[in-house]
Design a protein around this nucleic acid. Structure first.
Lengths: 263, 263
DNA sequence: TAGCCTGTAACCACGCTGTGAAAAATGGCC
DNA sequence: GGCCATTTTTCACAGCGTGGTTACAGGCTA
């Protein structure tokens, strides 16, 4: 949120060399970083490039264009996607936008406008997004320093790996609020979670282990069954006084019954 | 939260009656809610309208147009802003986008495209927003925080399951009004209730148990025989030592009359 | 009083999560 | 390039929470 914003990074999928040359010239003088590709690349590579937006001419991808557009948009919801095309009809434009594109610019178009539209798309993301604001987080005895990629409890480092750290940072940044697995995965891994993926659970466990080792008196990560996880520093299991069961005998009976685990 | 998404709500500032008529017709058939304004309104009013997006023709505002656009965009960063205008030049469009507009559509344009672009803008906002879509509810000592998936009484968590929580949230959101079982089921479960299904009753009971445990002095959920349930915080029958039996007539009267603060 | 509606408790099946470990991928080092 | 250590991902399985059903008892309406 300070003045020192990282330069805009965009990927361009287009083979209209004239258009690309004019556009990239403008981008250069504006300090933008760009990567020109002549064909579709796997969405994961776009993640690796760490671009803020994708400028794609779907017409050069042939019939695969629409499918590619849809795949990218659903897999990378955080990526700004602008489509360019020569003389697209209204229904084509509507189709593209409905598939998930953020904007559509018909060629021929002025590079300045393309850049302004790209900014508009990305601006909205940065404004509210869980973007790269490197603010340290301090909750109770826990301290997280994004600049050091380290987390401390009472000054002792937790010695987290990269994923563990990013997961903890996300959770602690949203102290008190429940985050669904999908959103966690999207934020930490950078792309949409596949159905049935258990990675989040596994890393939650690792985090819990390391947190518990350093401070056994507190519980940090709480499970919300069927929903997700919530970060909050609470004294671990104070054994709530009197669960107010009317009949203690009944409880014992049920407990006795419930041990029906067939080997 | 659940499947039920609220319909799209947009404000339209335009005096091109022909364009507006065609556009609103389309919106009506798509189930959108719209509010047409013939001149600029203070940004606070836009907030009060709870619209997701603003569609504005800056040209009808004269020289004030640009200033108004800038003011709205800076004051309401969460609002989607689309500008429409007759034959705007490239530099005008760029100027508008740089001032904070999310999209720019030159007239004449197809209403379907305008709507698709509006969806794209709002979609992006929802996507990155930290999910603070639902407002907390506070009734008496009861506090419900949708972001935490938790409900509290006097600060103590009620430890509700997912269904229990959504049911309580629905009831408390409609404080004072009777909700029929069908409506409740449709809202919480997301589909129509099968004939003879008792799930609602069972969950009402679970809720009552947990509520009563935390605050025995109050009754929260009231049965309306043959109709449904009504949420209202009332002091539960004080059980005066005088009468051997409770007077059924008095009870019925209480249910019918004692509605406190119908919102 | 008869009949329908609701309160209540117990039961069970399913899906979700915790957990350990193996397999795969990554990255550093020689 | 090949090897080793670390990290990440996948997999299988056990345990249990949750939600939905059912049955019975009690209450309300007509």
């Amino acid at each position: 949120m300070s003045d020192a914003r990282p330069p805009m990074r965009v990927a361009i999928i287009d083979n209209d060399s004239g258009f690309v040359r004019v556009l990239t010239n403008r981008m250069d003088s504006a300090g933008w970083q760009h990567r020109v590709l002549s064909s579709a690349v796997p969405p994961q590579e776009l993640v690796a490039m760490k671009v803020h937006a994708l400028l794609v001419d779907v017409s050069i991808l042939g019939n695969e264009g629409w499918g590619y557009l849809e795949k990218v948009c659903s897999l990378l919801p955080d990526l700004g996607v602008l489509v360019t095309m020569n003389g697209a009809t209204v229904s084509q434009r509507v189709k593209g936008l409905r598939l998930g594109a953020d904007d559509w610019v018909n060629k021929p178009c002025h590079p300045e406008e393309v850049m302004a539209r790209t900014e508009a798309v990305v601006r909205r993301r940065r404004r509210v997004g869980s973007g790269a604001d490197d603010a340290p987080v301090m909750v109770g005895e826990l301290e997280i320093r994004p600049d050091q990629f380290q987390a401390f409890i009472s000054g002792q480092s937790l010695d987290l790996t990269r994923r563990e750290f990013e997961l903890l940072y996300l959770l602690a940044s949203n102290d008190g609020t429940v985050l669904e697995r999908d959103r966690i995965y999207q934020s930490v891994w950078g792309y949409a979670m596949a159905h049935g993926d258990r990675s989040v659970d596994v890393f939650i466990r690792k985090l819990r282990q390391k947190l518990e080792r350093r401070s056994p008196a507190f519980a940090y990560i709480h499970t919300h069954f069927g929903v997700g996880y919530r970060f909050a520093v609470e004294t671990s299991v104070p054994d709530l006084p009197g669960p107010d069961k009317e009949d203690p005998g009944r409880e014992a009976e049920r407990d006795a019954e419930a041990t029906s685990a067939p080997a």
